[in-house]
């Protein structure tokens, strides 16, 4: 006859096998260390105020990106000013000097994005991008060094003549 203690030992062993071998969730790689980006945005041909819901500088890891909001929320893009901060966006200026920290590494696409309508998820378009060769209409990648600042990155924004929209 099986004793109580033996039955419990068998059960403990079964439970240990069932759950002890697998530890569940495991750590993911930490995000790259922070770096920083600074430069100037030059503006021309400002649109009417009723189409200026928001304006952001966005650095995308990939090009073309899936979308501005989904990329920012999933960590595939860094945004300046940060999400939820609308007080720092100046409209109708000739230029804006910017500097912000973001995870280091390579970014394929640096753009200035305008929210032109009320829909936070869909009403966005790029109005300027960082490109070394304006004739190609393709963005130029940047690389943010860990612990350091990539400086003097200039972006030209012409609201009347925006670059191709990948999102």
């Amino acid at each position: 006859m099986i004793t109580k203690s033996r039955l419990l030992c068998i059960l403990s062993l079964a439970l240990a096998l069932a759950s002890g071998c697998d530890r569940g969730l495991i750590p993911t790689e930490p995000p790259p260390g922070p770096g920083a980006l600074s430069g100037v945005v030059h503006y021309t041909s400002w649109p009417p105020l009723d189409s200026l819901f928001d304006l952001r500088i966005v650095a995308f890891r990939n090009f073309p990106p899936e979308g501005i909001v989904s990329s920012v929320l999933s960590g595939e893009a860094a945004v300046y000013p940060p999400v939820g901060d609308t007080a720092l966006v100046p409209f109708f200026v000739d230029s804006l000097r910017y500097a912000f920290s973001l995870p280091s590494g390579r970014y394929e696409y640096l753009a200035v994005a305008q929210q032109y309508g009320p829909n936070l998820f869909t009403d966005w378009r790029p109005v300027g991008q960082y490109d070394l060769d304006t004739n190609l209409a393709l963005p130029s990648p940047i690389a943010i060094p860990p612990g350091d600042t990539l400086r003097e990155i200039t972006i030209h924004v012409d609201f009347a003549n925006p670059p191709p929209a990948p999102f």
Binding site: L15, A18, D22, G24, T28, L73
Partner: peptide, 16 residues
């Protein structure tokens, strides 16, 4: 889930 980094990470639950 897109708001939270690794927000989609989940496994079966096995707790003793």
């Amino acid at each position: 889930a897109t708001i939270i980094r690794d927000g989609d990470q989940r496994v079966p639950i096995n707790v003793v």
